[in-house]
């Protein structure tokens, strides 16, 4: 990787500029695909676009120095949740056969509802925190630091995660199997 930076520096391109340009490109792409998710008339395509959006958010996490969160985002949200969405679409008969056409009434109600949620979130975020544009110094935790605290200080909560996952697994199977028979 340092070779790549050297290559950029030798051509007079500052590293800061590259990072900023990459961020704006990824952010724009993420927003574009988020629009596709909402505007797509096919629910299956919307699920695939959602995978792109979630990957873009993972990249934004990397820009914020949140390495583990980025791994979570790709592994759990892109890898598992979107797959679950796609499976749900595949399992439901005829969900994708016709395209959905919204009526003006429905669209206006949806617009009001989403605008209301937007303003509530905007207000709350504005009240609680200032708009920060950079990661504060010392705020980032590396993957190895996280692993170390998980294995030493937080060993018991770590094992409890496993138990909770087990409970979720058994619960999902009990409900899933019961509905089948």
């Amino acid at each position: 990787m340092s070779g790549l930076i050297q290559l950029l520096n030798s051509h007079g391109i500052p590293q800061d500029f590259v990072i900023k340009a990459a961020f704006y490109f990824i952010a724009a792409l993420t927003l574009l695909f988020a629009l596709f998710v909402v505007l797509s008339r096919h629910i299956f395509r919307a699920a695939v676009y959602l995978a792109v959006v979630l990957t873009g958010i993972a990249a934004v996490y990397l820009f914020l120095d949140a390495e583990f969160l980025a791994v979570v985002q790709v592994l759990i949200y892109v890898g598992a949740i979107v797959v679950l969405f796609i499976f749900t679409v595949m399992l439901t008969a005829d969900i994708d056969s016709g395209t959905f056409v919204g009526t003006l009434r429905r669209m206006s109600v949806a617009a009001v509802a989403s605008l209301a949620i937007f303003f509530i979130l905007f207000k709350v975020i504005n009240m609680v925190t200032a708009w920060k544009t950079a990661v504060p110094a010392g705020a980032s935790i590396s993957l190895s630091q996280l692993g170390k605290s998980l294995m030493t200080g937080y060993a018991l909560p770590f094992e409890v995660i496993s138990l909770i996952s087990l409970a979720a697994l058994v619960g999902a199977l009990v409900i899933g199997k019961a509905e089948k028979r």
Binding site: L75, L84, F87, S165
Partner: peptide, 23 residues
């Protein structure tokens, strides 16, 4: 679908393997 649900759980397991591998 049940296999997909199980996959989600074991995906979480893999997730916690990641910081462990590093150290």
């Amino acid at each position: 679908y049940l296999v997909a649900l199980m996959f989600v759980i074991f995906d979480i397991e893999v997730l916690f393997l990641v910081p462990w591998i590093v150290i």
